[in-house]
Simulated assay, not measured.
Amino acid sequence: MGISFNHTIIAAKDREASAQFYIDIAEARGVNSWGPFTNVQLDDGVMLQFAEPPIDFPPQHYAFLVDDDHFDRAYGRIQERGIEHWADPQRTLPGQTNTEHGGRGVYLLDPAGHYIEFITRPYL
Rank of each mutant, 00 (worst) to 15 (best):
S33E: 00
S4L: 12
N98T: 00
M47Y: 07
Y22C: 03
G113M: 07
L124S: 10
Q60D: 10
P89K: 07
A19I: 00
I25A: 07
W86M: 06
T120F: 02
I55G: 08
N6Y: 13
A87C: 07
R15S: 11
Y62N: 08
F57T: 06
Y107H: 05
A51T: 11
E52C: 09
T120W: 02
F50Y: 08
P59E: 08
R29F: 08
A112S: 12
Y107N: 01
F57H: 07
G76I: 00
D110A: 00
A28P: 06
M1V: 11
I10G: 05
E100I: 07
L42G: 00
E117Q: 09
A87L: 06
A87D: 07
D72T: 11
G82P: 04
W34S: 13
P122G: 09
Q20S: 11
G103V: 00
P36L: 10
N32E: 15
A63H: 08
F71A: 01
Y107P: 03
L109E: 15
D69N: 11
R121P: 05
L109Y: 15
S4P: 06
R73T: 11
L109P: 07
E52W: 01
G102C: 02
A87H: 04
H7E: 11
I23C: 12
N32S: 15
P59Q: 10
I78M: 04
R73H: 11
F37C: 07
E27L: 06
A112M: 00
A74V: 03
P54G: 08
E117T: 04
T97C: 12
N98L: 00
Q96E: 11
R77S: 04
I9F: 15
M47L: 14
Y115C: 09
E117M: 04
A87T: 04
F118A: 06
P94L: 03
D14F: 01
P58L: 10
Q96N: 04
E52Q: 09
I10E: 04
T120L: 05
D24Y: 12
N39V: 06
M47E: 14
Q79E: 15
L108C: 08
Q79K: 15
E27W: 03
Q96V: 02
P94Y: 01
D44P: 06
T120R: 02
A74W: 00
G30Q: 12
L48W: 05
V46F: 12
D69A: 11
F21H: 10
Y62V: 07
E16R: 14
Q60N: 09
T8Q: 14
I10R: 01
G82L: 04
D14P: 02
L42V: 01
M1T: 14
Q96P: 03
Q96L: 09
A63P: 13
I9Q: 13
P59A: 10
N32W: 12
F5K: 12
F50D: 07
G30V: 08
A51C: 12
V106K: 01
Y75I: 14
